[in-house]
Design a protein around this nucleic acid. Structure first.
Lengths: 215, 215
DNA sequence: TCCCTGGCAAATGTCGACATTCGACACTTG
DNA sequence: CAAGTGTCGAATGTCGACATTTGCCAGGGA
């Protein structure tokens, strides 16, 4: 038994799945009693799970009132993507290590895979490949503290907005944008890498934010 | 009633004060029952406080076993300072706004105040002034998401290591190091600002880490 | 002597219930 | 009719107790 699972973890996963399913949308109230009833557990582990998700930024919390699914303003959306670009760009630039030929090939193949997934309209696969692509890059950093922050932000943006970003670019654009990132990384100019990733994410952030402006 | 205080918040503050007092040191076990008994409350709010502090990175947590005060490895210490330098440097460079004459004067005065505090051996005042100095700089960012991450890291490093950094530099050095940061900021070269703050923090991080290496 | 094993104590995980607070709705009043 | 107010329901905050797991230590065997 490597990792003992506690009820709290089940609740966390359950809430995340509700967010992925769309059954929980930004602004929706999250009632502890409801979750407890759904899963047949008491409110104690539910409260811990909710508090954890609040800490992750996935839920907003008001004392004595309760929690709602985080409802980021357009500016907050952009800000989150900016922060992610900053962290991920640095993590990649700072990792320093060279990419093996095999690793380069794998990353390039992922770009192609993104294009075919996008062309097939398989958004789920596209998002998944995109996540693998980025993780392969920033995951090379030896800085665990940085990694924690990146994954927190990454997970937050993924759960809140993964639905959308597949629709902002044509299959060609998706492939090309990520190919360009790769070339920056392989070239080894750290400053260019950081700027490139910042730009990559701020563009996506602006597009996502645009969807949430005054509807 | 602006901000209703709940027991959980009291517990958080209590644990932080224990860490500041040195009654809780890195590696020490944090028993929920003990805290509950100390404060005369039940374990429920204590658990929430502990979980919050785990999320902040101040405590390490092992399921079914308990929590201990975070005991960062030398590398993790450096990594944390690197991350803070990255975030703070960007926040300052990206805020873009000009500093008023009064603001510049205040910041320069804080540098001098750091020197006098250091010369007087008043570490508490020195650390406090240092915190105000840095907050005045990074607090100008409009990016709330960034700010949250900075303050989380800042608070973590402050609580775990505020004891030490006052002793790494002479009063003159402290003043000069911060004056140099100010000149970078006032000059407005964003890239130089980012690099400067990264360097500032990585140096401190290395010195702190050195204290925790194989004693 | 060392290792394994079994049980004991203590800490965490979970539960159900009660207390407290907030938000909403209907009612009163000017 | 609008504004303020009182009450009620529901959700959160807290509590004490029980269940379960972990780490430790004593005891026995090789």
């Amino acid at each position: 038994m490597i990792n003992r699972q506690t009820y709290r973890d089940h609740v966390i996963e359950y809430v995340c799945s509700l967010m992925r399913n769309g059954q929980l949308q930004p602004g929706d109230k999250v009632r502890e009693s409801g979750l407890a009833a759904d899963l047949g557990v008491s409110r104690a582990p539910v409260r811990e799970a909710v508090r954890h998700l609040v800490g992750e930024g996935l839920l907003d919390y008001r004392p004595q009132v309760g929690s709602i699914v985080a409802n980021l303003s357009p500016q907050q959306i952009i800000d989150s993507y900016v922060a992610r670009g900053l962290l991920e760009g640095f993590a990649i630039a700072d990792s320093g290590k060279q990419f093996s030929v095999a690793a380069r090939q794998e990353l390039r193949q992922l770009c192609e895979l993104m294009e075919t997934s996008a062309a097939d309209g398989d958004d789920e696969a596209l998002v998944d490949v995109g996540a693998r692509f980025h993780r392969l890059l920033y995951g090379r950093t030896a800085n665990q503290q940085l990694l924690e922050n990146i994954e927190r932000l990454s997970n937050k943006l993924h759960l809140l907005f993964y639905r959308h970003w597949a629709n902002f670019y044509s299959p060609d654009q998706i492939r090309d944008r990520h190919h360009q990132l790769l070339e920056l990384v392989f070239k080894g100019d750290e400053w260019a890498v950081e700027q490139g990733f910042r730009q990559h994410y701020i563009e996506t952030g602006r597009k996502v934010a645009a969807l949430y402006t005054t509807e």
